[in-house]
């Protein structure tokens, strides 16, 4: 009981501290690839620090939903983060939920975020909510099917079990089912974290934004919570991808040495994954909104193929 509490606190701190770093890393790498200087890798920390020190303006059209949303998004994302194995194959809150709970907790955050977008009464908020819910609805079956492929392989929806099975099989990631599911989840990751070509996290051009449109009216600490929540969500999905498919170096016991090694491995793999996201972002143009279903249909088909290919093995 105390051990669970302790591990949960450790992982929570890790989530809170590493998430802005990953966002900063992606921004910096992207700038370098585009031959810009770009912000420093620690910029997100500075941003958060500043946002939490500022005052804020609440729109007079908004209701209590607007105030509650940052807390709901932040907490739901953080709980989901505690359910995935990060530096140990045993997730701290693994008992409280597996991969289904993670997906649905992210759904809870999204639900409130979309409501907050509508709450202000501005058309941009509504536009963002409408698009966000549309993309999420289309990404969901692809994500679930990919997750099912992994879950069926491990015979479990518990992420700890999945990571354990993945570490114990040799050449595991070479199985086509794994690879196809990985590709599908990668596409879903791009859609869910609002990356190019689905959404542009850097834009404030009114008509193209999705996530930014929903949080347009937020300022100060609330905006800080939402930004932090978004980067935790990104870290969470990346970690999920890493530890469900490429778990080498992941220790299954909570021991100090093992944890440090796992942490180093995790950071290295995050670096590689971030680099590939940057590569995708830089080499692609943002899609028209109505082309996004193509991408998600692709993800769905890849996941379905992964499932079919377990059929013969």
């Amino acid at each position: 009981m105390i051990a669970v509490f302790f591990t949960a606190v450790v992982q929570l701190l890790l989530l809170l501290t590493v998430a802005p770093l990953v966002s900063g890393l992606i921004k910096t790498l992207k700038a370098r690839l585009q031959v810009r200087r770009g912000p420093g890798i620690l910029q997100p920390y500075h941003d958060l620090h500043k946002l939490f020190r500022k005052g804020m303006v609440l729109p007079d059209t908004a209701s209590w939903i607007f105030t509650a949303t940052p807390y709901v998004v932040f907490s739901a994302t953080a709980i989901a983060g505690l359910m995935i194995p990060m530096i140990s194959a045993k997730a701290p809150l693994g008992l409280f939920g597996g991969v289904l709970a993670v997906v649905y907790l992210l759904g809870l955050g999204r639900f409130f975020l979309a409501l907050a977008g509508l709450d202000t009464g501005s058309s941009f908020g509504g536009l963002g909510s409408s698009r966000e819910m549309t993309i999420a609805a289309l990404a969901e079956p692809a994500m679930m099917l990919a997750v099912f492929t992994v879950a069926i392989g491990a015979n479990s929806t518990s992420l700890s079990e999945i990571a354990k099975v993945a570490t114990s099989t040799t050449w595991h990631f070479l199985a086509p089912a794994q690879m196809l599911a990985f590709a599908a989840l990668f596409l879903v990751l791009i859609a869910e974290t609002g990356r190019i070509p689905v959404d542009n996290p850097a834009t404030h051009l009114e008509l193209t934004m999705i996530h930014e449109a929903m949080i347009l009216e937020y300022s100060g600490p609330y905006l800080g919570l939402l930004e932090w929540g978004a980067s935790i969500k990104q870290l969470l999905l990346m970690t999920l991808l890493i530890n469900a498919f490429l778990p080498f170096g992941l220790h299954s016991k909570w021991s100090l040495g093992g944890l440090l090694i796992s942490l180093v491995y995790l950071l290295l793999k995050l670096l590689v994954l971030a680099a590939s996201i940057v590569l995708v972002e830089t080499t692609n143009a943002k899609m028209r909104f109505f082309r996004v279903p193509d991408l998600l249909a692709m993800a769905f088909t890849l996941a379905a193929l992964g499932l079919v290919s377990t059929f013969l093995f």
Binding site: D294, A297, M298, F300, A304, L305, V308
Partner: peptide, 13 residues
């Protein structure tokens, strides 16, 4: 496009 992709998936099956 999405329909074509899903049909290709079906053909794989």
């Amino acid at each position: 496009m999405p329909l074509s992709i899903v049909i290709s998936g079906g053909l794989t099956l």
